[in-house]
Amino acid sequence: MSEFQITCENSSSPSDLKFLQEKVSEYNFSQIGQYEYKPLTVFMRDQDNQIIGGIDGMTGLGWLHIASLWVTDDIRGSGYGKKLITAIEEEAISRGCHSAYVFTYDFQALPFYEKVGYSIYGQLDDFPVNHTRYFLKKKLNQ
C-alpha cells in the first residue's frame, strides 16, 4: 500500500476548494438528487431608504436557513423582528419550504426565536467559552 501525504493548509487555492466542494456535491446528488440553495433577503427601510432592519438566509431541500437577523436598537422590541421573520417564512413557503432552522447564541436572540415558534433541538456549551450556541427549528405552515 502506498503512503499518502496529508497536509493542513491555512490558505488553500480556490481551485482546490472548488474541487473538494464539487466532489461532495457529486456524492450528495448521487444520494438525494440535484438541488440548489437560493439566497433570500428581506430588508426594512425608513423614509430615507436607509436600512433599519433585515433578515437573510437561503432556501433549499425544503428548508429555510436563517443566517442573520438585525433590527436597529431604537425600534428593537417593537414587533419589527417578528414582521421580518413572517416575511422571510412566507417567501420560503412559496419556494416550497416546509421547515426553518437558525443558530443563535445565549447573548443574542434565543428568547425572540422561541417567542416566534422556534424550538431548540441542540446546543453547544462553551462555544465560545462561557457561552452557548443554540440550534432551533420550526415547522412552517403550508
Rank of each mutant, 00 (worst) to 15 (best):
Arg76Cys: 06
Asp73Pro: 10
Leu136His: 08
Leu140Ile: 07
Pro111Gln: 07
Asp46Asn: 15
Glu9Arg: 12
Trp63Val: 11
Asp106Lys: 09
Tyr80Glu: 09
Asn141Tyr: 01
Pro14Asp: 13
Trp70Phe: 10
Asp74Ser: 13
Gly81Tyr: 03
Thr7Ile: 11
Tyr80Cys: 03
Ser11Gln: 12
Trp63Gln: 09
Trp70Ile: 04
Asp48Pro: 00
Ile88Trp: 08
His65Thr: 13
Asp48Cys: 06
Leu84Arg: 07
Gly33Val: 05
Lys137Val: 06
Leu20Phe: 12
Tyr80His: 15
Met1Pro: 08
Cys97Ala: 15
Ala67Pro: 00
Asp16Cys: 05
Ile52Trp: 01
Ala92Gln: 04
Ser13Met: 04
Glu114Lys: 15
Gln142Gly: 14
Gln47Lys: 15
Thr72Phe: 01
Tyr118Val: 03
Thr41Met: 07
His131Gly: 08
Trp70Cys: 04
Val129Ser: 11
Ile93Thr: 07
Lys82His: 06
Gly96Thr: 05
Lys139Tyr: 01
Gly77Asn: 03
Thr72Leu: 06
Ser11Val: 04
Cys8Met: 07
Tyr121Ser: 06
Tyr118Glu: 04
Ser78Glu: 10
Tyr121Glu: 06
Ser25Lys: 13
Glu89Leu: 08
Gly60Trp: 02
His131Tyr: 11
His65Met: 11
Glu22Cys: 09
Gln47Met: 06
Leu61Thr: 02
Ile6Val: 13
Asn49Gln: 14
Pro111Leu: 04
Gly54Tyr: 10
Glu114Arg: 15
Leu124Phe: 09
Ile85Phe: 01
Gly53Met: 03
Asp46Ala: 08
Thr104Ala: 10
Ile52Asp: 00
Thr7Asn: 14
Ser119Tyr: 06
Leu40Trp: 09
Phe127Pro: 00
Thr59Pro: 00
Tyr35Cys: 04
Glu89Ala: 12
Gln47Asn: 12
Gly122Tyr: 07
Thr104Glu: 03
Phe127Glu: 10
Val102Tyr: 01
Pro39Asp: 14
Lys82Leu: 01
Leu84Ile: 02
Gln47Pro: 01
Ser2Phe: 05
Ile52Val: 15
Ser15Leu: 06
Val24Ile: 12
Ile85Gln: 08
Ile52Cys: 05
Ser12Phe: 03
Ser68Cys: 02
Val42Ile: 15
Gly57Glu: 05
Leu17Tyr: 05
Lys137Phe: 07
Lys139Val: 12
Leu64Glu: 02
Phe19Lys: 08
Gly77Trp: 00
Gly54Ile: 08
Ser25Asp: 10
Arg133Lys: 15
Gln34Ala: 14
His131Thr: 11
Gly33Met: 06
Ser94Ala: 13
Thr7Pro: 00
Phe112Arg: 13
Phe29Trp: 07
Gln31Met: 08
Leu64His: 03
Leu84Asn: 07
Lys18Gln: 15
Thr41Phe: 02
Ala109Cys: 09
Cys97Lys: 05
Gln123Pro: 00
Gly81Asp: 03
